[in-house]
Design a protein around this nucleic acid. Structure first.
Lengths: 381, 381
DNA sequence: ATTAGCACTCTCGGCAGGAGAGTGCTAGCG
DNA sequence: CGCTAGCACTCTCCTGCCGAGAGTGCTAAT
């Protein structure tokens, strides 16, 4: 099976209004005639909702009596049982064993998230609680991202995850070349948002430290404020134009910058609050836990998902079970991108059990992304 | 109780020979008249050794019969039982419950490590297996440290931990100033070993980006190759000397550098292979595991221990149980410092259960430290 | 001093039985 | 025809019990 992505789109008029729009859109699709809607009657949907929410609350299989008792449905347990049997047949629910209650399947969560879930915007108190965590003073960009991860994990009680922007999606602020041994050169980039990244290159011909200095100063005056994409284009066109002219230094400049920009760098991932997730009852199973921590450690899967999220528009929800990523079976990942004023730059989110409190976490992720975007903008304009 | 540090000293003539020296010293102190030696007869020591090693192997409480069977002692189980009772009375062993075997206490491990343990040097094959992990080509200093952590964890099957050098213990290579908003300045340091560190400062008076550039170029020519300590001294004496002379730029230079060097930066910690430790049977207990991961997350305790290790000479072994750091109860930490050719710069080690294979891990930590020192030197000379 | 023997203690796995939760089915009701 | 009450059935989980096994401490003999 494939990992399905949710088309949880934001409106154009800002993220938060996007959320409201989204809720509205979902409400509409409930009445309208889209695929899934035909499959489930309104009553069945209500019952599915009750079961998912109950299970999110308690982490225990949900029985028919619980549903009628705790969620005011004017129905008897027997009726609910019939409905539950139907929902199981359709693949939304499953039973750990006969004579246990039901728990949602991946498909169940998916339907819940796509077509049932109502996201309420954060209260101003909640927003304050989140934004208070960034005592802006003198935080370096990297620290802002780390802090965002910590905030996400602390507020949600799950694990926060933040991907630093890749160099190529950023705006140029500063470059520097430091000669190392054997002709190798350490390149230090500073992006407009103040993020410092570095790499080592081996230029085809040797350069004196004086030359490196001159080249850096030159580039810094010329390229400031351009996106890396623009930088690349400009350098390329210049190279074309001046191919004929014999200017030693210019040639070296171009050669050096080309080397420096050749490969992607960045995409570092910060994972914060991993111990939080140990509180979740699903991870009393040590083997499962180990699986999850292995995933945290190697990061490639997470980078992959965050990359997708960065490219996509709006909130993405990945539900672990039933997906090709059996690694994080039983886990869900809620992500969105954050962006400074010029173009998309990174992604962040929360990892928790599929049995996660989506309606609480989604607005937190959303607001955090907005906040990070703002801070990176304000701090560095 | 306090966390005791072991005086596991290296000789002056290189680390590895230090290990051998150490073993010799330990052997001597066994015969000599130091405190603990009087407390235990040779036979008792042999039995304690057998028990600790058996427990390291099996993670099961060790019974008297096992000791006689698997370690060739010409003694009956009954005799061993008597000795075990004595060792328990003296605090070296404990029983999970009556009629279970014995397991070592913190004191037991401590005695084993200090006075019994024989460390054998690595075979050349093992050394190769470790050094092969650094495919030197173009690794940035930070990546070298990360890789060292990974190597430590992979070889030992426990968790590797590496602390990056603090700026103050390093040698100056390069500095750069990047203007941000509102008069703030991003300072980028490159140390001789190629490590890039940065911080944000707020100079008392504003500086144009032209001035910043000039100052950086000036400092880079003047200070290269000095230790940060020397840099500070030089700047200070210059400040004294030129107090009278009215040179605007020089004054600004000194002001800026002073700001930049005011606080310590660095001391970042890389923890690799956390999931490894989940294989250890002591962590089937989820609560214990959570404790440990909390410690990993907040890092301050680890930084504290590594800082101590950096200052101390030679190998340090911290044994968790019985210590003021109940956080890592049941865990031990083996650390040593690594050093480039000029002065001590960082520390690294392995975290594992107290029931860790010391004789295997100690030489690995030792060799890795030597290797990291070398790589940082070679790469950047 | 060391050891053989023995009674004792404690854990652990398996097993049986009962409580509790929940189901599926069937028959009756509006 | 949809809903519901009732009931038999299933499965888990907890408890108590028992015996096997491992290991101990003590005592008496060598």
């Amino acid at each position: 099976m494939r990992l399905v992505e949710t088309g949880y789109e934001s409106g154009k008029s800002g993220r938060l209004s996007g959320l409201i729009f989204s809720a509205y859109r979902m409400a509409r699709s409930r009445i309208g005639g889209i695929g899934m809607t035909q499959e489930l009657t309104e009553r069945n949907r209500r019952i599915l909702e009750a079961i998912v929410e109950e299970y999110i609350d308690t982490a225990e299989p949900v029985g028919s009596r619980t549903v009628t008792r705790r969620h005011q449905l004017a129905l008897s347990p027997a009726t609910v049982r019939n409905v539950m049997a139907d929902l199981e047949e359709l693949g939304y629910l499953t039973q750990p064993h006969t004579s246990a209650g039901r728990i949602p399947t991946g498909k169940g969560y998916r339907f819940y998230v796509d077509s049932i879930l109502q996201v309420r915007p954060l209260s101003s108190g909640e927003r304050k609680r989140i934004s208070n965590r960034y005592h802006l003073e003198g935080l370096r960009a990297e620290e802002v991202l780390r802090e965002a991860g910590k905030a996400l994990s602390a507020i949600s009680n799950y694990t926060g995850i933040v991907m630093a922007p890749r160099l190529e999606t950023t705006v140029f602020r500063h470059i520097d070349f430091v000669p190392l041994s054997e002709g190798r050169v350490l390149v230090v980039f500073v992006t407009r948002s103040g993020l410092v990244q570095n790499k080592i290159i081996q230029p085809r011909e040797p350069l004196s430290s004086r030359e490196l200095e001159t080249i850096a100063n030159h580039l810094n005056r010329r390229l400031k404020g351009l996106s890396i994409q623009e930088v690349k284009e400009q350098l390329f066109s210049e190279m074309e134009r001046d191919r004929s002219r014999y200017d030693q230094l210019l040639r070296k400049t171009l050669m050096l910058s080309q080397e420096a920009l050749k490969d992607n760098i960045g995409g570092e991932v910060f994972i914060e609050g991993t111990s939080n997730i140990l509180d979740q009852p699903e991870f009393s199973n040590v083997a499962k836990m180990k699986q999850l921590f292995k995933t945290f450690e190697q990061k490639s899967l997470l980078i992959d998902l965050l990359d997708r999220s960065q490219k996509a528009d709006g909130m993405q929800i990945f539900i672990g079970s039933e997906s090709e990523f059996s690694d994080i079976d039983g886990c869900s990942l809620i992500t969105t991108h954050y962006a400074s004023r010029r173009g998309t730059i990174g992604a962040l989110g929360v990892i928790g059990p599929s049995r996660m409190n989506y309606s609480q976490v989604i607005p937190v992720v959303d607001y955090t992304a907005k906040l990070v975007s703002q801070i990176l903008d304000i701090e560095t304009e």
